[in-house]
Design a protein around this nucleic acid. Sequence first.
DNA 1: GTATTTAGTTGCAACTAACAACAAATTGAG
DNA 2: CTCAATTTGTTGTTAGTTGCAACTAAATAC
Lengths: 161, 161
Amino acid sequence: MSQQDLQLQQDATALYEAVNQLVRLYQFRDRDLICCHDVSVTQCYALEFLAEHGSLRLQQLAELMLLDKSTSSRVVDSLVKKGYVTRIAETDDRRAVALTATDTGVALYQQIRAELIAQEQQLIAHLSPEMRQASIEVIRALGVQVKQRSTNSCAVRPCSD
Amino acid sequence: MSQQDLQLQQDATALYEAVNQLVRLYQFRDRDLICCHDVSVTQCYALEFLAEHGSLRLQQLAELMLLDKSTSSRVVDSLVKKGYVTRIAETDDRRAVALTATDTGVALYQQIRAELIAQEQQLIAHLSPEMRQASIEVIRALGVQVKQRSTNSCAVRPCSD
DNA sequence: GTATTTAGTTGCAACTAACAACAAATTGAG
DNA sequence: CTCAATTTGTTGTTAGTTGCAACTAAATAC
């Protein structure tokens, strides 16, 4: 194996370990609140989609979140209870419900988002633009990879069991 | 705001969104198996610690995994049932149990690890060593940040509620 | 006008994880 | 040495999350 190949393999291993660590630790945010605010991570994702898209039906939200509609319905339940989202029946199709983030909900999401972005900013402030870009690319690519992995059951080889 | 500051902020936002996406999608691996192998993600983490550390007591494993000892005990249960880990009572302290990955267990972990590393390698093969290094650094730093965030309840400001 | 489809909710079961109570072994104090 | 306190690990219970299936209500199709 060449020096370069060796280096690549070492880097891949380091990347694997770093991602592993990151994702493992992130699991613990799930049960906690997002940084002191009274929403779970799943709830925050839902709030994010609603804040970004303006208004969504439950079905659409469920698809975006890759969750079952029943689960989404319950996530919305809790957000409604907390006053971050409203359910308003649509007039033209009275089965449908328009989910909308309230002002409080949007404000909460923006606050959480701003805090998290500020943290990311600290993290990459010392890096050159090229390095930053590379990091972002890699993390994006990891996301795409995981997405493929979760739709196919296995990315490397077909399922053996 | 200067051009550079603006760029930094944009990069931070992009990073936030990429990490968000990655971590959100990773949640779905949790219920599935790690890429067709018959262990859950938590079980795989336990297997990893045992394969890396050789032999651990339950208490030690629980601390490493940041889980309650009861939860760890049950995670180990399932790994024992599947034949990936053995529980062997220690002779000098008969309360204690030495947890050890079996050969099969180590082999499984190494296979999973190798597959994941191969994927990472594809991902970063086209990057220059400096770019790779930067990516790894950033992801590592994100991990450390999350760790702090999960011990302190809030990294940015003291809890307001 | 009835049958089918669609949107959303609720019942239920499976799973995960923590807390508390517990049993068994070890350690310590007198 | 003996009995209390501590340590190690397991089990009972509870809370929370999620998906599937069954359901209601509304809209659409024939």
